[in-house]
Amino acid sequence: MADLTPEQKEKKKELAKYKRKVVEKAGVMHDIVEDTIWTDYVKLPQLSEEIGLAMKDVESFLDEHPYLR
């Protein structure tokens, strides 16, 4: 990535926050699948929806700031 302006650097930090939300939710899903699938499987549909919505936020942000792709 070429040199970024200060504003672009701030947007990159903002993008990292959106991505972190996705990764955190995916981590919860991973823990359920790995450790508690037999008792917590009912949580997976909601988590899946939340991950999908968080990914939409990431994609929308990237659409608005394509230089971050």
Rank of each mutant, 00 (worst) to 15 (best):
F61V: 04
L68C: 05
L53D: 12
R69F: 10
D35P: 03
K19G: 04
S60N: 15
E14F: 07
D63R: 08
A16Q: 15
M1S: 12
M1H: 10
I37C: 11
G52L: 07
E50C: 09
I51N: 04
Y67W: 03
K9I: 06
K21Y: 07
E24L: 09
A54V: 01
D40F: 10
V23K: 03
T36F: 14
D3V: 03
I37F: 13
H65Q: 12
L53H: 11
E7R: 14
K13Q: 07
K11Q: 10
A2T: 12
W38M: 14
L15I: 11
V22Y: 00
H30S: 07
P6C: 03
L62S: 05
R20K: 15
E7H: 01
E50L: 01
V33Y: 09
E49H: 14
V22K: 06
K12V: 07
E59A: 14
E14Y: 00
W38D: 07
T39L: 14
D35V: 05
E59Q: 04
V33L: 11
K56R: 13
L4F: 15
K25C: 02
V22C: 06
E50P: 02
K13A: 12
D35F: 14
V58P: 00
V23Y: 05
L44H: 06
D40V: 09
E7F: 07
K56D: 02
L15K: 01
K21E: 08
K13H: 06
K19R: 12
K43M: 13
E10D: 10
